[in-house]
Structures are given as structure tokens and as C-alpha cells.
């Protein structure tokens, strides 16, 4: 991911210079991720497309403000996609019923993706990293994973999660803390964080 990260930064520099081809390359690398995350939030393909388009137009106009020392390109894109999706959900006041993905879903989708535009070595490393991330999340105890997903995809506070699950607030706080600590250690060991 390190080499990919450095090359992403140079790609962003080209986007900042107004090269539409560079934005196209960025879309080939991360368009599927942005669309999939947005779709997971809003559950409506048309709205997910609209969000994806907004994200890439935002990247186009804000590329000069991107600071690689604060976050990698994929992390930055993931975070602005989450923020944009949460804004969309707030507009429609619909923050419920998020499905749970599994490792097999991801592996199957990775295997059927086209990905022709990317260096095969980079593609293999990136997708292996991704599989490890999914496996790390899937390996969490169900209750911890559920609490973390409610916080991430529903943007619920711990108190709201406790109400949603009908559990004591302290229990929810413990689940989230322990889940995030485990994830941090697993990702640190695999060096997949960017």
C-alpha cells in the first residue's frame, strides 16, 4: 500500500493541475469503493451514483487542498464519502437497516471486477490488503462488529446505539472500545493501514 500511496499522491498532483485523464485514473482505482460505500449508506443506486459523482467533482475542485501528510488518498476519499452519505441520510432522516457484508461477498466482487487500468502488482497488493481488512472486521465478535457498524454507517452516538440495541450504555461503550482496539491491533500487525 505504501508504493500505491506515493503514486496516488502524484496522481492527485496531476488532478490538481487540471488533468482530466488523472481524475479518470483515480476513478478507475477508487470509483467502485466510493460507489459501494455510498450505496451501503443510502441503499439507493441512483442516490449512490449522485454521491459518487459529487465526490469526484469535489476531488477535482479541491485537489489542491489535499495534504498527503494528513491522510492517504483512499482514506481521504473514504472519509469524504462517509460525510457526504451521512449528510444525505440526515436530509432524508433514514439511518436504519444497514446490511452486513461478509468476506466472501468481497472476495467474489474482487474476483469479478475489471481493474484493467491498474498495474497487476498494485492491484494484487491493494486487493489483498482489502481482503485482510474485511477478514479483520469479520473476525470481531458479532456484538462488537454490530456496535461499530451502527456507529460508522448510522452515525449513531453510543447512547443512541444503546437504545437501538436495548442494552446498557456501559455495555455498548465497552463493545465499541474493545472492538476498535482489536481492529487496531490486527491492522497494525498486517500493516494495512494507510
Amino acid at each position: 500500500m505504501g508504493k500505491r500511496s506515493a503514486e496516488d499522491t502524484i496522481l492527485m498532483k496531476r488532478v490538481a493541475r487540471g488533468e482530466k485523464d488523472a481524475l479518470g485514473e483515480l476513478y478507475d482505482l477508487y470509483g467502485r469503493l466510493v460507489y459501494s460505500v455510498a450505496l451501503h449508506f443510502v441503499r439507493d443506486p441512483n442516490v449512490a451514483e449522485e454521491i459518487t459523482q459529487d465526490i469526484f467533482v469535489t476531488i477535482w475542485t479541491k485537489a489542491r487542498d489535499y495534504n498527503p501528510e494528513r491522510a492517504g488518498v483512499s482514506t481521504w476519499m473514504l472519509r469524504i464519502t462517509r460525510n457526504r452519505s451521512i449528510d444525505e441520510l440526515r436530509r432524508h432522516k433514514s439511518r436504519r437497516d444497514i446490511p452486513v457484508g461478509t468476506t466472501m461477498d468481497v472476495v467474489q466482487n474482487v474476483n469479478t471486477s475489471n481493474g484493467e487500468a491498474e498495474d497487476p502488482e498494485n492491484l494484487a497488493v491493494r486487493e489483498w490488503d482489502r481482503v485482510r481488512i474485511v477478514e479483520a472486521v469479520d473476525s470481531l465478535p458479532e456484538q462488537q462488529r454490530q456496535a461499530l457498524r451502527l456507529a460508522y454507517f448510522h452515525d449513531l452516538t453510543h447512547r443512541e446505539i444503546a437504545e437501538e440495541l436495548n442494552e446498557p450504555l456501559g455495555t455498548v461503550k465497552s463493545r465499541i472500545r474493545m472492538g476498535l482496539q482489536k481492529l487496531r491491533k490486527m491492522l497494525e500487525a498486517g500493516e494495512v493501514t494507510e
Partner: peptide, 29 residues
């Protein structure tokens, strides 16, 4: 923060419509 990002990165990947790429490029201001 990276660990929390992993929750988002773990979503099943779905293919966007093939036309979305050109629509985005054509709409760039």
C-alpha cells in the same frame, strides 16, 4: 481512525454503472 475506516472499507464491493465514469468526466467544471 484507521481502524474505524476499516469498518467502511469492509463493505461488499458493487460495480457502478459503466456510464458513470464518462458522466463524471463530462460534468467536471
Amino acid at each position: 481512525r484507521s481502524a474505524f475506516d476499516a469498518v467502511g472499507l469492509s463493505v461488499p464491493l458493487k460495480e457502478p454503472p459503466p456510464s458513470l465514469r464518462s458522466r463524471i468526466i463530462d460534468s467536471l467544471p
